[in-house]
Amino acid sequence: MNPIWVITKKELGSFFDSLIAYVILIAFLGLSGLFTWDPFELIGSSDIFFRKQADLQAFFGIAYWTLFFFVPALTMRQIAEERKTGTIELLLTKDVTDRQLIIGKFLACFLMVCIALAFTLPYYFTVAKLGDIDHGATLCGYLGLLLMSAAYISIGLFSSSVTSNQIVAFLLAILIGVLFHILFEVMAGNGQGWFSNLLENMSLRYHFDSIQRGVIDTKDLVYFASIIVLGLGLSELIISKRS
């Protein structure tokens, strides 16, 4: 069996073993469901019934934020805990390379997000029953969420690799994430010229929205791929230092 898959399976297993998976699934589905359907009229300005449109924009809008917080919760222990307990030494003296370890952990977190998103598919079927849903746009919406999660997972793994403290890893992931998530966009809006343009291009929201509109542009795919590769590459580099 490929070592990457062995690691992935073990990590995924330990999510479900340690209640992390259930807590995150319940919190994610609970929050997303509440804000998507808003059955108690708590907000009453962005949910599906208020919009009266057969699309999942309400869900994508809220998942954009819930995933932002849940992904670091998944990634924070990945490497930090291995460092703290010393098991990283155990792993890396087995027939596993640093890269395989990182990719294995990345895939485990990514699959966990996929499982969470799979549980929201009933939203899609429900809305499709209610009206004439745009299948392409919905698909792109999910793709956008997956790409965004992948990017944050790689940022989260990087944060987890620089420390042996899970809380630090979580906060660092949020800190780096918030730049991409909102700050670059805000800063771009306040400025002008090439710098503002650059910031806009670095904003994750910009690319997320672009995919969500139903257009899969190479530019956006390259953007997400670069964050993922950079994050995972840096994690590998840090692990290889063995400090």
């Binding site: 069996m1 070592p3 062995v6 330990s14 073993d17 030494e89 155990l90």
Partner: peptide, 20 residues
Amino acid sequence: PLYTDMPVIDYLEFCAALQG
């Protein structure tokens, strides 16, 4: 160092799989 959450058998299987 050990993965203390894992049962002994699972842990040994995990190590065996990693070692190919």
